[in-house]
Design a protein around this nucleic acid. Structure first.
Length: 757
RNA sequence: GGACUCGUAGCUCAGUUGGUUAGAGCAUUCGGCUUACAUCCGAAGGGUCGGAGGUUCGAGUCCUCUCGAGUCCACCA
């Protein structure tokens, strides 16, 4: 053995050994009916992205648990996969198109989908090969991609089932729409930013007494032309007499009745509000309650619509400037508060201001209907069917659940699973709007009634880009094109990526080996970063409870974010991003994993830097050298594996008592998912007790080589889940020296303090 | 506005149901190439565990208040 552990040479060989021995495939091992099962579904990384340090974190933790339970003899499965990552991927692809001076509007949806598909294919192995390199003992024979045919088919069936049970509905709602990304988002995908914007006080003339005015305050004057009503609080002493009066729209002079609604805060602004139901969530709700018209003023491209007269076609920002100028000319601006601090919704993806738009979309009902999905989750938590490990995150989850609204699952993008819906054409030609590309490359937009005058249905469908059907248009659900295709027009929206990943634990087990679902569901641990607790974990609980009437996982382990050695968030702009593959090259995969895991706590961020990797690398070298010493002495004394079993009675020996204590401690800690603590316990026990004290005692003949060798074997087993490569490499040396017999350490049995079996 | 987390050695962090002289890595000082390892070994310095009060035989650990840092959520025009 060399005096230095050369991970760059050894790690790839060990990977090959594990591959040959199929350590990760639970079917490659015997099991009985009483064998306990242990399963983790891997959080699927984006198929076409290189991994980052967060991925390395989940690999380190999940592989540690997987290897531990495998060594305990449990029926162990770690099931890997990748995600198509709808918006993320399409966004990246569109950036690529932009560099070639193209946009998604240059393609029909079939072509665009195909292009993105090819792009993803080209890069889809990146994440997988990198995760393998970290030593992930996941069962790659069970690998799943979110767009695999069988996965898609299951997701579509779920949609049909939800719809049948009334838990999915289509409705006109005000949705968060990004005019740059060209799609709506769920409430979770928008950010809020504090900004200083002008607050305009605008005067409205009364219809009967035009010399008298009333003022309202607004940050959004541009859609005023479409407003139809004002509102005051019905109990406001100063203002309630205004209810029923009529004022004139300052831009169009159209009459606007004043209504009463308690949503108005008499203390704020002037105590009078203009209602813009099509572009403000509050106003939308009020309009629905009072049955007021919802008049859109802004398009999904962020431009003023035709009904805006002279403002039509202007961007919202430009229109605002012009509106203010016009109102000033009419002397209808009372004042402008330039320093009003306001909270703005922005797109999490591109940072643009979110435009609330009225769009008919599909929603998952979360708190009413046949099943109250939120109640299901709360019961899981109450009954401790699912326990959440991660610094108060259960409370955060509960807090969010209490105010959860229906989930918008429609996305106006191509890259994803198309919602299997077809709209009835006959009689609804003027309520369905489509955009399609002619063969010449010319884009056409219009109602079907208009488009069908000059084009055949086949032409339109062939070049189809988007469909917008009004909420009243009847539709059918069908995964394949309906038999009477000429009477139906396809939906073009796709599912929110999280809609398919919310079913991941169920779907991956249902589409693999026939008995996998029965064998591994509910899964044991769901391990992921706390940043996607709401996006993903909560949704998996929603859908898991719907599909299986039980929790999808018994434990949720939420690791913290990885920060740099100064505790700062990693970001490209700061230049402090750590690439896990670089660390693997420089220090080895074991060192990376150990550095990430040791003393980490669920839910708490972890700082890490070069000195941490160095320290962990030194541990692998320590393991190697301690082993080298013991192996050489064992050979000098002609020991063989028959001499090296852990003795049954260890009471008399201080060495074995201490060793057993370590075994008990580490096992207990791993059982309680205290992985960072277990790693720390092991590090100290191995280095400062076993190496610093015990091996020195061997040199002084205070401890026998035989005892020390027994101890080494136990330590290798304990260390293996954390530093799998070096321990396996040593194991192969021990095997060559006839000191152990098992083919590999990964499949050997975990130490017990009562080794009777 | 609501909720959550953190504040322990110079730095980054552990501390498992409250239980003896509060730990690790890195950094610092001193001494060592001792026949596994200088990616090492031995020794040393350094903490009134943010602050105040309380519960307890006993609190870094539980409770209350308070100061500081950060995160999540929320429709105030």
């Amino acid at each position: 053995m060399d005096s230095k552990y050369t991970y760059t040479e050894i790690e790839p060989k060990i990977l090959q050994l594990w591959d040959t021995l199929q350590i990760a495939n639970p079917d490659a091992r015997k099991r009985t009916k009483s064998t306990k099962s242990f399963s983790i579904i891997m959080p699927p990384p984006n198929a076409n992205d290189p991994i980052h340090i967060g991925h390395a974190m989940f690999v380190a933790i999940e592989d540690t648990l997987t290897r531990y339970h495998r060594m305990l003899g449990e029926d162990t499965l770690w099931l890997p996969g990748t995600d198509h990552a709808g918006i993320e991927t399409q966004y990246v692809f569109e950036k690529k198109l932009a560099k070639q001076k193209q946009s998604r509007f240059d393609f029909d949806r079939e072509t665009l989908y195909q292009k993105i598909f090819e792009y993803v294919q080209e890069n889809s192995d990146i994440a997988v090969s990198q995760i393998k390199r970290l030593g992930a003992s996941a069962d790659w024979t069970r690998f799943k991609f979110t767009l695999d045919e069988d996965v898609v088919s299951n997701v579509l069936e779920t949609f049909k089932s939800l719809h049948k049970n009334g838990l999915v509905y289509r409705d006109l709602q005000l949705v968060n729409y990004c005019t740059k990304c060209g799609t709506s988002y769920s409430d979770l995908e928008i950010n809020h930013e504090d900004r200083t914007t002008p607050l305009y006080y605008i005067k409205y003339r009364f219809q009967d007494t035009p010399q008298k005015t009333i003022s309202i305050a607004t940050v959004r004057p541009e859609p005023i032309f479409a407003d139809t009503h004002l509102a005051v609080h019905p109990n406001d002493h100063d203002k309630k007499h205004l209810i029923g009066k009529v004022v004139l729209n300052p831009l169009t002079d159209q009459p606007m009745p004043i209504i009463g609604d308690s949503f108005v805060d008499p203390e704020f602004g002037t105590g009078v509000v203009k209602l813009t139901p099509a572009h403000d969530p509050n106003d939308f709700a009020v309009a629905k309650a009072h049955n007021l018209p919802i008049v859109p003023a802004i398009s999904n491209r962020g431009k003023i619509l035709e009904n805006g007269g002279k403002y039509a076609g202007l961007s919202a920002t430009k229109a605002r400037e012009q509106v203010i100028i016009d109102l000033q000319k009419k002397q209808l601006i009372e004042k402008i508060d330039e320093k009003y601090s306001n909270r703005i919704s922005t797109c999490y993806r591109c940072g643009r201001v979110i435009e609330p738009l009225p769009l008919p979309q599909f929603f998952v009902r979360v708190k009413s209907g046949k099943q109250n999905l939120v109640k299901n989750i709360e019961k899981m938590l109450d009954d401790n069917d699912t326990s959440i490990h991660g610094a108060g995150r259960e409370k955060i989850l509960r807090n969010w659940l209490s105010s959860l609204k229906d989930w918008n699952i429609s996305r106006q993008i191509v890259w994803g699973i198309r919602i299997p819906v077809w709209y009835k054409i006959d009689g609804y030609e003027d309520q369905i709007t489509a955009t399609f590309l002619e063969k010449s490359g010319k884009t056409n937009t219009g109602t079907l009634a208009e488009l069908l005058k000059n084009h055949t249905l086949e032409e339109i469908k062939a070049g189809l880009q988007t469909t917008t059907a009004e909420a009243a248009v009847p539709y059918i659900l069908s995964i394949t094109p309906p038999t009477e295709a000429q009477h139906y027009f396809p939906e073009t929206d796709t599912f929110d990526t999280w809609f398919s990943s919310s079913q991941w634990p169920v779907v991956t087990l249902q589409t693999n080996q026939p008995d996998d679902f029965k064998r591994f569901y509910p899964t044991t641990v769901m391990e992921t970063g706390y940043d996607i607790l709401l996006f993903w974990v909560m949704r998996m609980m929603l859908m898991g409870s719907y599909l299986t009437d039980t929790t999808p996982f018994k434990h949720v382990y939420l690791h913290g974010l990885i920060r740099d050695d100064k505790g700062q968030k990693m970001s490209k702009s700061k230049g402090n991003v750590i690439n896990p593959l670089t660390v693997v090259d420089e220090f080895g995969a074991d060192a990376l994993r150990m550095a990430l895991v040791i003393r980490s706590t669920p839910g708490i961020d972890k700082s890490i830097g070069k000195s941490d990797f160095k320290a962990a690398r030194n541990l692998t070298n320590k393991v190697w050298n301690a082993s080298r010493f013991i192996i050489s002495r064992s050979q000098d004394q002609s020991l063989s594996h028959t001499d090296l079993a852990l003795p049954a009675d260890t009471q008399e020996s201080e060495f074995f008592t201490q060793l057993n204590q370590t075994i008990t401690d580490v096992s207990t800690q791993l059982d309680k998912l205290q992985i960072g603590l277990a790693a720390d316990t092991l590090y100290s026990a191995f280095w400062h007790w076993y190496c610093d004290e015990c091996i020195e005692h061997v040199k002084l003949n205070k401890l026998s080589t035989q005892e020390a060798a027994i101890g080494l074997i136990q330590f290798l087993k304990l260390l293996h889940p954390f530093t799998p490569f070096v321990t396996e490499a040593v194991w192969q040396e021990l095997r060559a020296a006839n000191l152990v017999t098992d083919d590999c350490l990964a499949l050997s049995t975990w130490p017990t303090t009562n080794p009777t079996d």
